[in-house]
Design a protein around this nucleic acid. Structure first.
Length: 321
DNA sequence: ATGGTTTTTACTGCGTC
DNA sequence: GACGCGGTAAAAACCAT
């Protein structure tokens, strides 16, 4: 555990004055309006029912529990690990044996000690991944990470994906399905849930699994885990497409306006959100005299030109009246 | 499986650079 | 003449039943 202290090193300045308010007005009555106090367990706050005054904030501080004024103190005081994360198969909680052959003081180990450490490392690694579900998770999380990077999805989505995948695993949804498939489906679901959807085609490009299987597995996972995911909002595709076509902010905005309008008139139901987004972009670009061909839009949106034409007409029809 | 809807494929003619 | 665009018909894909 010698070198694992860096994680919080840069947030060492906190004043410690936050907690002074919490200790004063203890009791069951609000000091401000004498209303009843209730504990909001989720947020770790004690709040007045009547006036909403937060009397006590008792939150969990995930920052360092110490302050360091120089590098030396940092080494001495630090005994905290990294925050736990769902993105590691063991939530980052298992033992890791440093690969450097140094003792706690940084001295190099004697050769017999080195051999011992090698054996320990080997066995530790074996035990750590022994359980088949753990091995399964390890592989899946690797895949998820790879695909999420390829699609430019943020860590928050990866976390959500991990959670979904874990649930699928613990509810025995895996047998009969591939790890890859479930991992991809989980990612697809997580991205949509986060409002930054990727189309099935995009998923297919980075996954080792066929589109059909992704879709099938996705439906299955959604149903079994009772995840409620509303159809993707066309507008959420717009900024990404617009930027890969190097279109202006104005066009971007106009495209979303067209979509909002279409939504109001109910033109969008049943149509593919991606197609709608693509058409809106094309229409907006055309309205503001930016040159984009249908071909280019259809390329980035992975939708046919015909579909763009059809949607595009509908959009402008409605707009013109 | 089936039927209805949407998307894609393939092909067309027209205008422009 | 290549290219972008618009249209059409038929095939394929999708979805709920």
């Amino acid at each position: 555990m010698s070198e694992k202290t860096k994680t919080h090193a840069d947030e060492t300045q906190r004043t410690g004055s936050e907690h002074e308010t919490g200790t004063r007005g203890e009791g069951t009555v609000c000091p401000e309006c004498s209303g009843d106090l209730v504990k909001d367990g989720e947020r770790g706050e004690t709040v007045c029912e009547d006036c909403g005054l937060v009397v006590e904030t008792d939150e969990i501080d995930r920052g360092p529990e110490w302050r360091a004024f120089d590098a030396h103190e940092k080494d001495e005081k630090s005994r905290v690990g990294a925050p736990t994360t769902n993105m590691m198969h063991d939530r980052g909680l298992s033992t890791n044996i440093d690969w450097r052959d140094k003792d706690a003081y940084g001295r190099t180990l004697a050769s017999n000690q080195r051999q011992k450490m090698n054996r320990l490392r080997k066995w530790n690694e074996r035990f750590r991944t022994q359980d088949s579900k753990e091995r399964n998770l390890k592989q899946a999380l690797g895949e998820i990470d790879r695909m999420a990077s390829a699609l430019g999805l943020p860590d928050s989505v990866r976390e959500t994906t991990s959670v979904i995948y874990r649930r699928a695993l613990s509810e025995d949804l895996l047998p009969g399905r591939s790890i890859e498939g479930v991992a991809t489906a989980s990612l697809y679901a997580a991205a949509r849930q986060a409002g930054i959807p990727r189309s099935l085609d995009e998923l297919t490009n980075v996954s080792r699994v066929e589109k059909d299987e992704i879709a099938r597995t996705y439906r299955y996972v959604i149903r079994e885990l009772e995840l409620e995911i509303q159809p993707a909002d066309p507008e959420s595709y717009v900024p990404r497409f617009a930027s890969s076509l190097a279109l202006s902010e104005e066009t971007n905005r106009q495209a979303r306006e067209l979509l909002a309008d279409a939504k109001r008139r109910g033109i969008h139901s049943g149509k593919s959100p991606v197609g709608l987004a693509a058409a809106a972009i094309y229409a907006a670009a055309r309205l503001s005299n930016e040159r984009v061909t249908q071909r280019e839009v259809s390329d980035v949106a992975e939708i046919s030109e015909v579909t763009i034409r059809n949607r595009y007409q509908e959009l402008l029809d409605e707009d013109g009246q």
